[in-house]
C-alpha cells in the first residue's frame, strides 16, 4: 500500500509541476477577454501624454488615430466588454497611471440601469479570471490574504487549460512562430495599435437589445468613480466621463431612467462630465448589431464629436 501511496504522491507532484510550468510558460488564451493582456502592454509602453479609454464594447470602434492626431495624446483603448465591470477595470489601470494621463470613462446604460446586467457584472466569473490573468502579481496575494486558495487554483487551472489547448492548436496547424505569443491569439488581426477594433462592427437587423429593461440607478453605484478620480488626482491625472451612444428610439423609451443617471452623475461625480446623454443619441441606422455598437457611419459622426468635447474639456 505504501508503494501505491508513493506513486499517487508522485502523480500529484508531477501535475503540480506541470501546472506551474504551463502557468509561467508564454502562450496565448483562445478567449476574447484575453485581449486584456495585450492591452495592458500598451499601458506599460505608450508614451505620455496619454488618453486612456475605459468602457465597454461601444468604445472599441472609436477612431484612435484621429483622436491622437487631433488631441496630441497617445490613445490607449483599454475597453473590451461592458460586462467586465468598470470598477474592476479601473482597479487594473491604477498601478499604471502617470502624471498627465487623461482617463476617459463610459459606462454603457445597461451596465448601470439594468438590474440583471448589473448583478451579472458583479458576479461574472469569466471577467474575474481574465483580470487575474492581466495582473496575477496583484491578485495572487489578494487570494492568499482572503484564504481563497481553491478559487485561485481553479482560475489558474482554467487559464492553463486554455493555454494548453492553444498550444495544441498551434502545433496541429504548424503555427510554430506564434507558439510563444501572449494574450489573445487573434489580437493583431482584430485590434489596431491603439486597441481599437481593426474592422467596424457588421450590421445586423433586428438590432440586439438584450431584453433591455431599465430602472432608476442609485448614487452608490458610482462612488467608485470618485474613488478612482481621487486616486488619479493624487497622481496628477485627470478623469473624464461621457455618456455612451444610444439609439434615439430606445432613449425615448428609457428617457426618465437615463436622465436620472445623468442627474446622479452631474450631482456626484467629481471628475469632468464631457457630454449629456442626448449628445450621443443617434438614429438606428447608425448602429451595427446592438444598441451599443455604432457602425462605420455612426462612428464617423461620433469620433469627431467626441474630439470636440474632449478638446473643450482639456
Amino acid at each position: 500500500m505504501i508503494r501505491m501511496f508513493r506513486n499517487i504522491f508522485i502523480c500529484f507532484v508531477l501535475m503540480a509541476v506541470s501546472l506551474t510550468v504551463v502557468w509561467f510558460a508564454p502562450g496565448t488564451y483562445p478567449h476574447d477577454l484575453a485581449a486584456m493582456v495585450n492591452k495592458k502592454e500598451m499601458l506599460k509602453t505608450r508614451p505620455s501624454p496619454r488618453m486612456i479609454f475605459v468602457g465597454g464594447s461601444s468604445v472599441l470602434s472609436i477612431n484612435g488615430p484621429l483622436i491622437e492626431k487631433e488631441l496630441k495624446h497617445s490613445v490607449i483603448n483599454m475597453s473590451l466588454w461592458g460586462g467586465m465591470g468598470t470598477q474592476e477595470h479601473l482597479d487594473e489601470i491604477r498601478p499604471f497611471l502617470r502624471a498627465g494621463d487623461v482617463v476617459v470613462i463610459t459606462m454603457e446604460y445597461g451596465t448601470l440601469l439594468d438590474p440583471r446586467y448589473y448583478y451579472y457584472i458583479h458576479t461574472n466569473e469569466e471577467a474575474k479570471k481574465f483580470f487575474f490573468l492581466m495582473s496575477p502579481e496583484r491578485h495572487i496575494p489578494e487570494y492568499f490574504r482572503k484564504g481563497n486558495y481553491a478559487e485561485m487554483l481553479k482560475i489558474m487551472h482554467e487559464l492553463s487549460q486554455m493555454k494548453v489547448k492553444s498550444y495544441l492548436r498551434n502545433i496541429a496547424t504548424f503555427n510554430f512562430s506564434h507558439l510563444c505569443d501572449k494574450g489573445f491569439p487573434n489580437y493583431h488581426i482584430e485590434f489596431d495599435a491603439n486597441g481599437d477594433r481593426a474592422n467596424p462592427y457588421m450590421v445586423f437587423r433586428p438590432l440586439g437589445d438584450r431584453d433591455t429593461s431599465f430602472t432608476y440607478p442609485h448614487e452608490k453605484q458610482i462612488f467608485f468613480l470618485n474613488d478612482f478620480n481621487d486616486f488619479a488626482s493624487a497622481r496628477k491625472a485627470r478623469v473624464f466621463f461621457y455618456f455612451s451612444p444610444f439609439p434615439d428610439k430606445y432613449y425615448l423609451i428609457n428617457e426618465k431612467y437615463i436622465n436620472a443617471y445623468y442627474e446622479i452623475m452631474k450631482k456626484n461625480f467629481k471628475g469632468t462630465l464631457i457630454n449629456k446623454p442626448s449628445d450621443f443619441m443617434y438614429p438606428e441606422e447608425y448602429f451595427a448589431d446592438t444598441i451599443y455598437h455604432l457602425n462605420a457611419k455612426g462612428e464617423n459622426i461620433r469620433t469627431p464629436e467626441m474630439i470636440t468635447m474632449l478638446k473643450r474639456a482639456l
Binding site: P30, H31, D32, M162, K165, S166, L168, R169, A172, T173, F184, P185, N186, M202, F204, G208, D289
Partner: peptide, 24 residues
Amino acid sequence: PQNKVTFLGFSKPAFFPEMITLFL
C-alpha cells in the same frame, strides 16, 4: 454565423482549439 458570439456551442476563438483537441 456572423451575428452570434458562439459557434457550435463554443465561443468563436475557442472553437478551433477545442475541435483540434477533440480530434487529437
